[in-house]
Design a protein around this nucleic acid. Sequence first.
DNA 1: CCCTTTCTCACATCATTTTGCGATTGTCCC
DNA 2: GGGACAATCGCAAAATGATGTGAGAAAGGG
Lengths: 220, 220
Amino acid sequence: MQLYQSPGRAPITTMITVAIIEDIKEIKEGLELLIDSSEGFSCIKTFATGEEAIKDLPAVCPDVVLMDINLPGINGIEAVRNLKTKCPTTQFIMSTVYEDDENIFESLKAGASGYLLKKTAPSKILDSIMEVYHGGSPMSSQIARKVIASFQQKKSIDETDILTNREKEILKLLSKGLRYKEIAAELSISMDTVRTHTRHIYEKLQVQSRTEAINKIMGK
Amino acid sequence: MQLYQSPGRAPITTMITVAIIEDIKEIKEGLELLIDSSEGFSCIKTFATGEEAIKDLPAVCPDVVLMDINLPGINGIEAVRNLKTKCPTTQFIMSTVYEDDENIFESLKAGASGYLLKKTAPSKILDSIMEVYHGGSPMSSQIARKVIASFQQKKSIDETDILTNREKEILKLLSKGLRYKEIAAELSISMDTVRTHTRHIYEKLQVQSRTEAINKIMGK
DNA sequence: CCCTTTCTCACATCATTTTGCGATTGTCCC
DNA sequence: GGGACAATCGCAAAATGATGTGAGAAAGGG
């Protein structure tokens, strides 16, 4: 099946082993063909569901796994979370149609190293497998920007200029989960003053609860 | 100075304006020449120190800034932190000889969108400027991996095995700041059930408030 | 079949938070 | 001095959250 391998060539010593988890039959077989027909790559296993992968993938632990996110039953993110612990050296590349922030971050946290859109060109897919195998993290620069943006969201409390210093101080303590009476004790002021500051904070941030205020300032 | 621009060609309408902050004269002039001699790019300003840039860059706010990290006086990261607020639309690409984790993250947090090593080939530098200008985040996949690694250290809610799936679900909504009644509506269950789940969550996490629970699970 | 876990719901009570309306004291600036 | 703002405190009502107790239904394992 090595369509592009010249006959008589010395055996490839560094064959990259790949597994595919993908529920759509056509896509799965397309990827399998792409990989098996490319020199230096071998698709050693495919699965249609996360459950099957969790059951049988650890026995082989391929170099790279292409994991669909939208799977029936347990999704690809959960599958990676589970499998990454059993196959720590395996590199996981998520595959999805959506460029959804939540999924991107959850995937990365779950242990994925790369993130590809399904519309990605076949040659790019092979590049990405190579890249992740060699310690890189393939992702479009658009996705990289989202990842970076999540860093920048975390403006530390002090950068907000709409709150006074005292209000920032109160908000910090609020975010630590202290109660009004504890904050009052901490700052040696009355509980009513804490109430007043909190009210002002909420008004300025346009929220109506502690958690909302924290989320608004700290970023998600 | 447009070395590579064919004579008689129609004027470029979308010229990308670039500024360079770099204390080593040779490198600075090399970059300047590279940019000015490339079609579609214009180096409108260069600085040898962060102080000068902070003083005079806001007047021009170029599309892209190449910022050296190791500058005398205030370093490139501080300079970006300062300049990004004054020129929010300007994209900053950090330039450095070291692939240092700490610097990478601090730069990104400060507002940089890309990260290049000084050994990067000239053509790649131009590519990166284009990329960052078009909303991407150019970085080597090695650096991307480091960025991703920092994500994986953050335990996500789902990794807690002491909570049931339903409880995790409730906690996610709690962390978004929703009220009990809103959570109940969201999950189509009664408010009392939300209360019960919340109580169990608190018992398992050994906390006694929403904020404490969030802090405990989300980590610092 | 029994036991455990999970998810569900109810009633009740107390604590805490959120919100409304005032008010006093400084400080800084025009 | 007048005005704007920041920080402090008080009272009080309404809303929400936290906690105790109990309990039924469904699922899964031994």
